[in-house]
Design a protein around this nucleic acid. Structure first.
Lengths: 341, 341
DNA sequence: GTGAAAGCGCTAACAG
DNA sequence: CTGTTAGCGCTTTCAC
């Protein structure tokens, strides 16, 4: 008698009056099994309460049915949309998602990747292109299907799906500049090890420079990706003079924090100051004032990235990386307006 | 010659001049292996690029090194803090997290649970207490270590860690009532299959009733968990008269949407209308106006839940459920004030 | 279409 | 402390 907590494929086979091999086949190659036998097997499964053991399946060197995802953090809205979309799509294809967070630490990321690989994930999704040499190396050696999300790069080492973040920076700078602003501040997170933020910032700076606008160092604010820190940093800025007439934030969360700071200082956004985000998070459109931002289509990126990854898993692993550029688009809303002098 | 992509424990053993068993031991019972042999093994691992196969380990009926988490959605801030805290804690104990989202669908949740069990997760974390009969049944039959997060219930079927949501409702109602408000509206999501929201709402209604306040049906608003839908619903409310002097929202995201609606209608929060949330999300304190809410300590809940789960995994599975009540606390902030008549 | 048998990579006795 | 041996639950040839 088996331990009743762990019914195995043999129990099912006996119950159904077939061999274990047939039960296995009915899962993995159902068309190779007679409909009538399948019925009996299904019945036996119900009766015994059998649950497949994917580990035993995975050991054959075959499919583990899992993919790994490593993100910097789950702690805020930044990746929520993206992950949700990725997760739903991946599930639709029968995969389960292993998630790990690295807290923006690239060494930690490497450790996490190893751990995911221990679990024999069939593919891995990462954020952006800044990864340690070891990470790239491991991915390469093990020939792991991989996709990078959130930043498009035409010469990326690995497949990627995302918007061009530099372009996002350019677009938002163009918008602010076209409204007549020249006294402009920036609020970005630490751009080291963060190619998305870095590219955005480069885009902003380069475009403004091309228009003859430079951002003085005291208006180049460094903040964390949180409403509270952004608000705090913006208040620091507002405590000093002169004030900029516009602030370009690294993303919508930061923009939101800055708007709160401005409002709490009695300023009207956008009459007294224009503020922009990047990313177009789900609440940015319905906030008051709604935020002028760059739409990066997280849902589309997540979904597309999932299917790119699945294609890689099922297909040719030696092929050139697949690179999909998701267009970015300015969303002009209430938080910005023409400079009135 | 082995396929170079898949080094196994035997390759390592040969390279290190020991038996496979010793390599295995050096992973699982390092203190049973001579330091010097360990060194040699480690070296061999490095040289061969070996990565353990957890699937093969899991098949022994032993540890898979994974735990499963099923949440309604990843799509917004609601569970972010919680999940992040849970994830970090679980990782600290060497586990990897399998995440699945059910979109608030309890039948789907059952399917996901089965899938997680196929992957032989060692434990499972769920949100709240509303789960299908099949889910509870499966958990019970397989004797899966499990913890429910986010809502404390003294007679829960499974271990749980969370605040008492009914109490949260009572506290916020008490606060609003104590400020002199009697014309009060509520904005809650669909409470079916959602015990957290249901308990909160019950708390609010019961307390107000006890004070002789009833909420008319046209002020009992149903909204989704999103800023945009909450704003939309609140605008609908504001389009009609009379207006309430206070609105109690089911959580901070909804409160936020309502505040935007009020502001966009030219009202001042709190002078013209008081608005409350529940949950104290990370941005609620630093928004403008900051939101009066009930602190539910998602970080504490996530972390605690993780350790409860791990204790269950390592310990006595027949034991009574562990139930940890995390205190809730009113956070009186800028979005509410005394009713001036 | 189905069964028998070999083996996936690893671990836990058991000897030594 | 370390090696030998016998599986863990499943999948896949290869016969029938």
């Amino acid at each position: 008698m088996k331990k009743n907590t762990n019914v195995d494929i043999i129990d099912v086979a006996i119950k159904a009056g077939v061999s274990p091999a047939t039960v296995s086949r009915s899962f993995n190659h159902p068309n190779k099994v007679l409909k009538s036998t399948q019925k009996r097997i299904e019945k036996a499964i119900l009766q015994t309460g059998y649950i497949r053991n994917r580990a035993a399946q995975a050991i054959q060197g075959k499919r583990s049915g899992t993919v790994g995802l490593i993100v910097p953090t789950l702690d805020n809205a930044i990746f929520s949309n993206l992950i949700q979309a990725f997760s739903v799509e991946i599930r639709q294809h029968g995969f389960t998602m292993l998630v790990a967070t690295n807290g923006y630490d690239l060494d930690d990321e490497y450790t996490l990747l190893r751990s995911l690989l221990e679990h024999r994930v069939e593919g891995v999704a990462l954020i952006g292109h800044d990864h340690s040499k070891e990470t790239y190396n491991l991915l390469n050696i093990r020939n792991v299907p991989v996709v990078s999300m959130w930043n498009y790069k035409e010469d990326s080492l690995i497949s990627c799906v995302g918007g061009e973040n530099k372009e996002a920076g350019i677009e938002i700078a163009k918008h602010i500049s076209s409204l007549g602003h020249t006294k402009i501040a920036m609020a970005f997170p630490n751009v080291e090890d963060n190619d998305r933020a870095r590219d955005r910032k480069i885009g902003v700076v380069e475009y403004l420079n091309s228009q003859g606008i430079t951002i003085p160092e005291y208006w180049d604010i460094k903040t964390e990706y949180s409403v509270s820190d952004a608000r705090y940093c913006a208040e620091e800025l507002f405590n000093k003079y002169p004030h900029p007439t516009a602030i370009i934030a690294g993303n919508d969360v930061i923009a939101r924090g800055i708007i709160y700071a401005a409002q709490s200082y009695g300023m009207n956004v956008p009459k007294d100051i224009s503020i922009t985000g990047i990313g177009d998070f789900s609440s940015s459109e319905s906030s008051f004032p709604s935020i002028t931002t760059i739409r990066m289509r997280p849902n589309k990126v997540g979904k597309k990235a999932a299917s790119v990854l699945i294609d890689r898993i099922n297909g040719d692993r030696e092929a050139e990386p697949t690179r999909i550029k998701v267009s970015v688009e300015i969303k002009s809303r209430e938080s910005t307006m023409t400079l009135k002098n």
